[in-house]
């Protein structure tokens, strides 16, 4: 139960504003994840050639991968607009997930190093951003009238369900990511706790820990994929003509 008793490095009532709380560990990890993604992205696109080699190949594969996700949901003519969003979302979420798998860092009793995506507030923020963007592009690309009609299509009495759907989409999108990553971290924390109990515990924890880290890597990839996939599904519901 070690990891669960760790405290978060909170900065409450920041600047004297009563509702403004920061979890400094989250802030740190968000910064680290953003920095890694940015450095990787820039490093991969320096020195680009028409005949791609090495890292550039990998980035182009990534672009094709995201293109595939978008292409399976909407027409590429509108979909190309969302390619940078999908790429950044995928890269950021994947890196964020991996940060917690590689290691959890504890300083004293304070949990500093973890996945930022193991926090519901952060995943819900991303989910809300996506849903708000889908409404924004719905209005922008199809006009206010068509956008509003989307809520009463195919049948008017679906209106309440459609409105509820927007909120449930946001919640499920955010909490799915949070739940998966947080669960992975809890189990990793428990295994670390077991490993620190003694020599027998260490030996007993090693094998499941390695297995679970491998599985968490897989989960981290899958969750990033699912997040981007659902992002594109929601966007396509709002911007495509046939929905």
């Amino acid at each position: 139960m070690n990891s669960l008793n760790h405290e978060a490095p909170m900065w409450e009532d920041a600047f004297g504003i009563s509702w403004l709380d920061f979890n400094l560990s989250n802030v740190l990890m968000m910064f680290v994840a953003s920095l890694i993604v940015f450095i990787l992205g820039v490093a991969a696109t320096r020195n680009m050639q028409r005949y791609p080699t090495g890292f550039q190949n990998f980035m182009e594969w990534l672009i094709d991968f995201i293109k595939g996700i978008i292409g399976s949901n909407m027409d590429w003519r509108t979909g190309r607009l969302f390619l940078p969003l999908g790429l950044t979302l995928f890269a950021y979420i994947f890196v964020a997930n991996m940060l917690g798998v590689v290691t959890n860092g504890v300083v004293g009793h304070t949990l500093w190093w973890k996945s930022p995506t193991a926090d519901p507030g952060i995943t819900l923020t991303l989910a809300t951003l996506v849903v708000v963007l889908s409404h924004y592009y719905g209005v922008k690309l199809r006009g206010g009238g068509e956008y509003a009609k989307g809520f009463v299509r195919p049948l008017p009495f679906l209106l309440p369900f459609k409105i509820i759907e927007e909120f449930s989409n946001t919640l499920t999108l955010g909490l799915r990511l949070y739940g998966n990553i947080y669960a992975g971290e809890i189990l990793l924390g428990l295994l670390v706790g077991l490993a620190t109990t003694g020599i027998g515990g260490f030996i007993g924890a090693t094998v499941p820990m390695v297995a679970w880290m491998g599985f968490s890597t897989f989960i981290g990839f899958i969750q990033a994929f699912i997040f981007v996939m659902l992002t594109m599904v929601y966007l396509s519901h709002k911007v495509s003509e046939d929905h």
Binding site: L20, F22, M30, S34, V37, K114, L129
Partner: peptide
């Protein structure tokens, strides 16, 4: 989760992500 829902985190996440 460890910290619950912190408005500050959300704002930071939003800013970081849009910046990124």
């Amino acid at each position: 989760g460890a910290g619950g829902l912190n408005i500050g985190d959300m704002i930071v996440q939003l800013v970081f992500f849009l910046g990124l």
